[in-house]
């Protein structure tokens, strides 16, 4: 078990997984795009505008997943003080922010033809925007606070506050009357999306997950080399 937590073992493993991800990502992205843009059917109400879902929904899910994971890691790091944990959450935060921005931008592009507006101060949209500010605050904290103990404390506080916002994002469409529709895909409950749309959505989610893994592994290597480089001086 100790072997699997060894930084040199993890670093070596990242190199191997990186090559594997690079091999699979392009074919999966191509299949995902073909399905989303050409093979999936139009929606009976939204028409072709529904195709925006195939980039908007996976991007939003990954941005939530990244924040949830980094919050958990921050708490673990705060309690157990595991050095390599900070490398992981530093690698995750920029990925989450990128997908958060994509979700907001594509959401605006989806909002215009379906709701007649690019933006509304609706509970779901506003809480997603707040998530973006949490990501920015988190990244700025570990970049500009030099003292690692203080930086870790502030990152944990931000991630905990952001965790409350994640709950608000999830339940905003239930608690308030919003423009945003309730979730169509539920892991625990009933999924209301048709299989012909669920397949392209799943392929695009896989493509986005692979992309996230690719960036995460590269970022992890960057952070590890930075630490090693400091050791040379």
């Amino acid at each position: 078990m100790i072997k699997y937590l060894n930084p040199s073992y993890i670093f070596n493993l990242t190199g191997k997984i990186l090559n594997l991800v690079k091999f699979f990502i392009i074919p999966i992205v191509i299949v995902g795009i073909i399905f989303s843009l050409f093979l999936s059917p139009e929606d009976y109400i939204q028409g072709d505008a529904v195709r925006i879902m195939y980039v908007h929904v996976p991007a939003a899910w990954i941005s939530l997943l990244c924040f949830g994971t980094l919050s958990l890691l921050c708490i673990i790091n705060f309690i157990f003080k595991i050095k390599s944990m900070s490398l992981v959450f530093k690698s995750l935060a920029p990925i989450g922010l990128t997908f958060n921005i994509i979700a907001i931008l594509t959401g605006a592009l989806w909002g215009q033809p379906t709701w007649g507006t690019w933006w509304a101060w609706d509970a779901r949209l506003t809480s997603m925007l707040i998530l973006m500010f949490f990501y920015i605050a988190f990244i700025l904290s570990y970049k500009f606070i030099k003292d690692p103990i203080n930086s870790s404390k502030i990152c944990t506080i931000i991630s905990l506050a952001g965790l409350i916002n994640l709950v608000v994002i999830k339940y905003s469409v239930i608690w308030w009357s919003t423009l945003h529709q309730p979730a169509s895909v539920n892991l625990a409950g009933e999924t209301t999306i048709h299989i012909s749309m669920l397949i392209p959505l799943s392929v695009m989610l896989l493509a986005f997950l692979l992309y996230s893994a690719l960036i995460f592994l590269m970022k992890y290597r960057i952070e590890t080399i930075r630490v090693k480089k400091k050791g040379l001086k």
């Binding site: 843009l37 028409g47 980039v55 908007h56």
Partner: peptide, 15 residues
């Protein structure tokens, strides 16, 4: 895309 291309293509291109 029945007029929706104006929104669909930029979404994919932005991403």
């Amino acid at each position: 895309m029945n007029g929706y291309g104006l929104y669909v293509w930029p979404s994919f291109i932005f991403t």
